[in-house]
Design a protein around this nucleic acid. Structure first.
Lengths: 188, 188
DNA sequence: TTGGAAAACTAACAAGTGTTAGTTAGTTTT
DNA sequence: AAAACTAACTAACACTTGTTAGTTTTCCAA
């Protein structure tokens, strides 16, 4: 593990616990036993931590949804796989997920604009699955935008309560979420 | 409208746009055309804004769920009404909702502990409805904790995309959410 | 053993933070 | 008219912020 990775990992942990703005370069430095100024031998600045993390996870998610569309499935299967990939990506590094879900707002103006664009594109991929399901006659005639936002809300919130040593594994969470989203709470 | 209310309202708007930590007392002051120090004639300090808002909305939500339990309904009807009340409370002031959903983390330690406790209690009320539904034989045998968190995630996320002048009214949103949560995406 | 890069250090800067103290003008109450 | 209250002000304090410049130490390849 390079020193840079060590710094990044420590920073992400602190930022998840205290928030991005509340985590100072001095906090990060002392957590890896060095002075704040020394961090600049490894990273360009504080924002680099946020940028690399947000865009890194964005790329992982994009690859995940592309994989879903490459393989031919019906909408229900596509949705199940998309949910699975999303949950895998998010639970794989909860600290990074926190920045991705909550702290992207503090990106500088241009980076934030780029981020929002990629996020919207990702949302659109989900929405297309919902629309496909309707065209197949398998899904109800719901408002696709509304449904997609609701689905993604459920997925992104998993990072708030998932605990790696807990009693549910990512795979199981994804499966339950898929079940819930497809057929809801009510019996028949 | 008192000067205090004016300050609070302005502060909440700024804090939703820029985040709690990124909004300085000087920002707030200049938005209401006064000096930062003068704010202290009306509020005790910056945290009071966060505390009053978070606990105020908490109380509204608690009243909402109590109302649901006072009136006898089956679980499906209870859930529908609980969702309706929750969405009404959240969409009624999106600025306050932002603090409630996102910025409560920055409460001081003791206030945060209180907040979490009340939040957990509110979650429990929702969970009890899910459990009741199962006991009635109306809901599936889902993991109640998992289901509740997923439901609340969907509800809380509404504040991220709801726009007051948009094409969906709170009542309609609540109705669609209820429908989605009860019977899901899939036909049959 | 030595040269040079990598990685740490100290010191400092310029800006911004929430908050307090003390004051003043204007209004309300006694 | 005198006293008290309200709400604004200026000035300052003590501290924290991200970052840069310049310097010293560490460490590995030649």
């Amino acid at each position: 593990m390079t020193r840079r990775q060590e710094i990044m990992g420590t920073a992400l942990g602190l930022m998840r616990k205290k928030g991005y703005l509340n985590t100072s370069m001095r906090d990060i430095a002392s957590s890896v036993n060095m002075e704040a100024a020394s961090l600049y031998n490894h990273i360009k600045g504080k924002e680099e931590i946020l940028v690399d993390t947000c865009f890194g996870l964005a790329e992982t998610l994009e690859l995940g949804i592309k994989e879903v569309n490459d393989i031919y499935f019906n909408a229900a299967e596509k949705l199940a796989m998309a949910i699975h990939n999303h949950i895998q990506a998010l639970t794989q590094d909860l600290n990074a997920s926190h920045l991705f879900v909550h702290e992207w707002r503090h990106l500088s103006d241009d980076k934030r604009a780029q981020f929002i664009q990629r996020r919207d594109l990702y949302e659109k991929e989900f929405r297309d699955i919902v629309i496909l399901g309707f065209e197949e006659g398998e899904f109800k005639d719901v408002d696709p935008k509304f449904a997609t936002l609701t689905i993604l809300a459920s997925l992104n919130w998993v990072g708030e309560w998932y605990r790696p040593q807990g009693d549910m594994e990512p795979k199981e969470i994804a499966q339950k979420l898929t079940q819930f989203i497809l057929s809801g709470l009510q019996k028949n």
